[in-house]
Amino acid sequence: MDPASILLGGFASGMVLFIVSVGLSVTMGLMGFVNLAHGGFAMLGGYVIVLAMKHWGLSFVPALALAFFAIAAFSVVLERLLYSRLYRAQELDQVLFTIGLVFVMTAAVTLGVGPETQVIRLPDWLRGQTDLGFMTYRTYSLALIVAGTLLVIALWLGFERTRYGARIRAAVDNRRMAQSLGIDVGRLFTVAFALGSGLAAVGGGLGAEILGLDPNYPLRYLVYFLIVVAVGGLGKVTGVFFAAILIGVLDFVLKIYFPKGGTIFIYALTLILLLARPHGLFGKRGT
């Protein structure tokens, strides 16, 4: 493969990693909540899309929108009913709770839909190859790159240029100070949580082509999502973006050149990186 195709393929999978992980980064940065069930929302989103397309005859893009709103709403219910009780709990109880949630989601999907891998049928205009002038490449990967780029720009503007984004950044940096200034961090968190889960759902659907979609999805990719968040830095949208692209490209290259056990380099790199910069590439310095 020539370098340009490798780069494009890596960018496409990096975009998927970004769309799924960005919510996790913000919610972990805001509340310090260890949410190991985040990949579960991505998986559920993928299944919403599959079922909506199969049974209701929805086409791909409306199904994506449906998944976003359905999972965002569902996550708010979970957040208000269950997550909110554990904000002041020990990290370990949060881990136990979210792993339990993953088990329930996995079992529910296995029982309701079945254990087999699901395929999302792409619309015709997303299939095949596109001529870029200097080369042709898979249309879907190019669409992923465009969609991911637009999303990161939108999120960046939302974070850096709106009052709401400023509040979130303030709360990530210093929750108590933000609260004393009258920012309702709880409400902020609920909204961020819903948005993040909805995006994860979209990412689950968009990425089914690359990551697959089956009941073991949340646990299988948990480590990848966590690596992206830890390398990018908590609560940093641009950090998560660059980390996701980095990991995506690296993973793509390694899968081609070292199909057996190439991921060892990703783990080693993460290890070295986190030892050198415990708060990630773009996280805050200091304690």
Partner: peptide, 11 residues
């Protein structure tokens, strides 16, 4: 469905 029971217990 054994995971369902385990998951609910953990929660």
């Amino acid at each position: 469905a054994w995971q369902l029971g385990i998951g609910v217990t953990l929660i």
